[in-house]
Design a protein around this nucleic acid. Structure first.
Length: 399
RNA sequence: GGGCGUGUGGCUGAGCAGCAAAGGCAUCAGACUGUAAAUCUGACGGGUUCUACCCUUCGCAGGUGCAAGUCCUGCCGCGCCCA
């Protein structure tokens, strides 16, 4: 029932892995043939899972495929606190309503990667909501203030005199206590989670449990090479539309290709080697990577289509398959009003800029006309296409 | 409770009383191409009768100036230090 194939185990312990404590112990556990409890905690803080985080779920999937038990901790309680990992500033606590909403979306997305029916899903409110204050204080006694504060991102904020919420210091305790509550054998997380994962080991020790082994994964950088972050807009989420997903991969920096092959795709080393052998043009390698990533979340067919669509629009500069339609009953239109009304520009000033920059083109059949004068009034015809930049199109429909 | 400091456009961060407000990042357009990459160029609050004019912005509310992001007063938020 438990797969102990050495090759698979080796893959699990190496691919995309940053650190393991204790490696020997974990290896033995995996070889033992016993079913392990693999803990993974998520705070339903944002609505979407990006492909960087998805890597960790794929890692869990590997464990699941070997027959181990995935214990997914939903931090409905801790989400109200806010983890300090990876944060330079305090995080706003979420309301219960937001948490519920996020959670629903989360499970739907996780199901794309894990077999959710086989996962043990636990909410940490289950134990925290009834924890007594005295028990919590006891938990705090396991650590000294120095131990907690020395953690890098606390230290940095401390040194820079930036605010650190007192409650934030408790976060590692809560996450660590989760491990004791579910008696986990292994916990995985991002490399920014190392501190929290280790707290789990300490707390398990305190409760005289066997200490979990911990594994941290490498962090996938965003498309521009900076840290992935929703606010940077450099992420790909696993529910992005196929075309979007494909395009985003194509737009990433060339230097990131290897990283994405390792963390965002599931191809074997041999396959990757082959791809690189076939072409040394980054465009082609990226296209191959993009296709693979889209396939993981949308399947072979849609992935194929996304590639065709991409080539159509950007390589051959043709029109996309689906063009939004702008319905109107006016046949004469001032360009600025047209762009504004068709939502191709957020304001008339912006429309003006676009025209002045030479980014606006009208297409009617084979006739193409670049609009250079923003005062111009144009005659509309059914089926006419307005093109703004290289990727915004609108088709005119006259009522 | 006391002292000091701080609050600027999507973010960051300058700003001597005459600025729609430097720089950086992000964004958008153009050229180029291997692509929505890199590089270069330009734009980047809104509106209009459009090389000009008008309106709205620099935590909030008042005040002094012909003129205030810039000075004064009072609030509010945030930070540090002392208690």
């Amino acid at each position: 029932m438990i797969d102990t194939n050495p090759k698979k185990i080796e893959e699990i312990l190496s691919r995309g892995v940053e650190e393991i404590f204790e490696r020997e112990s974990l290896l033995k556990k995996l070889q033992s043939g016993k079913q392990l409890r693999i803990k993974f905690g998520i705070d339903p803080t944002g609505p979407k899972i990006h492909i960087g985080r998805a890597f960790q779920f794929w890692k869990l999937r590997d464990f699941q495929d070997l027959g181990h038990k995935i214990v997914l901790i939903i931090g409905d309680f801790t989400a109200q606190i806010g983890d300090a990992s990876d944060k330079q500033a305090m995080r706003k606590p979420l309301t219960e309503k937001e948490i519920k909403e996020n959670l629903k979306n989360y499970l739907f997305q996780i199901d794309k990667i894990l077999d959710i029916k086989k996962v043990e899903v636990r909410y940490n409110g289950e134990w925290f909501k009834k924890m007594k204050v005295i028990d919590f204080v006891n938990l705090q006694m396991i650590f000294t203030a120095q131990q907690i504060i020395q953690r890098r991102n606390f230290k940095e904020r401390w040194d820079e005199a930036k605010p650190i919420g007192l409650h934030e210091l408790d976060y590692p305790l809560f996450q660590g206590y989760d491990s004791a509550a579910v008696k986990s054998d292994v916990e995985i997380g991002g490399s920014d989670q190392l501190f929290n994962l280790q707290a789990g080991r300490e707390i398990q020790k305190f409760f005289k449990q066997k200490q979990q082994d911990i594994m941290t994964s490498k962090m996938l950088n965003g498309l521009d090479g900076r840290k992935m972050s929703t606010s940077w807009g450099n992420i790909i989420t696993i529910i992005d539309e196929p075309n979007d997903m494909f395009g985003k991969v194509m737009s990433m920096k060339d230097e990131l290709i290897d990283e994405y092959f390792e963390l965002a795709a599931r191809l074997t080393k041999e396959e990757i080697f082959q791809i690189k052998k076939n072409s040394d043009n980054p465009r082609d390698i990226k296209a191959r990577l993009a296709k693979e990533i889209v396939k993981m979340y949308h399947g072979e067919k849609k992935s194929q289509k996304a590639e065709e669509e991409f080539n159509k629009i950007f390589r051959n500069r043709e029109l996309p398959t689906d063009i939004p339609v702008f319905k109107t009953n006016k046949k004469q239109y001032f360009v600025l009003d047209l762009l504004f009304d068709a939502k191709l520009a957020a304001s008339k000033n912006e429309a003006k800029r676009l025209v002045e920059g030479g980014g606006v083109e009208l297409q009617n059949g084979d006739k193409k006309e670049r609009i250079a004068d923003w005062k111009k009034e144009v005659n509309l015809e059914n089926g006419m296409i307005i093109k703004v930049g290289s990727r915004k199109f609108v088709k005119i429909k006259i009522k």
